[in-house]
Write a protein that binds this DNA or RNA. Sequence first.
DNA 1: ATCGCTAATAAGAATATACCTATTTACTGA
DNA 2: TCAGTAAATAGGTATATTCTTATTAGCGAT
Lengths: 142, 142
Amino acid sequence: MDSVQGVLELLRERGYRRTPQRECIVEILWESDSPLTAREVHQRVRQAFPHVSLDTVYRNLELLREAGLVSQINLQSRESARFELLRDGAHHHHLVCLACGDSFCLPVCPVDLEELERCHEEDFVVVSHAFELYGYCKSCRP
Amino acid sequence: MDSVQGVLELLRERGYRRTPQRECIVEILWESDSPLTAREVHQRVRQAFPHVSLDTVYRNLELLREAGLVSQINLQSRESARFELLRDGAHHHHLVCLACGDSFCLPVCPVDLEELERCHEEDFVVVSHAFELYGYCKSCRP
DNA sequence: ATCGCTAATAAGAATATACCTATTTACTGA
DNA sequence: TCAGTAAATAGGTATATTCTTATTAGCGAT
């Protein structure tokens, strides 16, 4: 996971195929220095693949999320989610500003293994989780 | 918050008006023994208010969530969220089954005040948060 | 009770996301 | 290299959610 090729390699090991559109989507995420919405990703992919469908973008973003390579940031506005590549593989979460929609990395993850184990005991297998803090950033404070 | 009237009273104290549609939505949530989707709420409200709009339902559910009276459970399927009234006011989160969409209450909340204080220091005012664990329940385990 | 202000609503449009199906294409093994 | 197979895609469609605007109605003050 040290490069775009590394990401595609990881996907291939998990049985996913290497398609030009998928490679393009990963490159776009890799080169972006901020989380992107699905629409933003789609617009950029279209520069190389004018006929790429929105479904392809959504499908690949979900695939990358499920593979643990992409973090999905749930906003609470019309553009309801942003996606970012976990370049260093470091799992983390975000602060989301309800006014401007900007997101800020949160270095902590609230989930500990004890909780997960307890869930297993209670007959529920946990495979992923979501966590966001909502509020107002310095610029938008009311 | 010991009855539907109590919920409406709390809302009034916060400056929200008491409308028949809003009262109906709160009653529906109050009487349901499981979390409902916005569409399910809408269908039930229509029995009393045939011309109620979906927007009214969404607006009131968001209002109740922001007031801390309703918990929103983010699913990861087409019906992307369910809502439940916090009858006893106990803040909590959920396990969500990715197969059947059922949700199970989680008695813990991962957010502690220390974290929130730290965010304040870093110029971000936190007003709410979201947390869900995703996986597979006993019946749906793959 | 009535007036005035503002929140709340209905209706419809706009947008985000997920689903469906036929077709294409990446990969596997002969 | 080539054929078979299953995954991936494009395009269209369906649904969920949010926004816009004009109208209605709750509630405080008179």
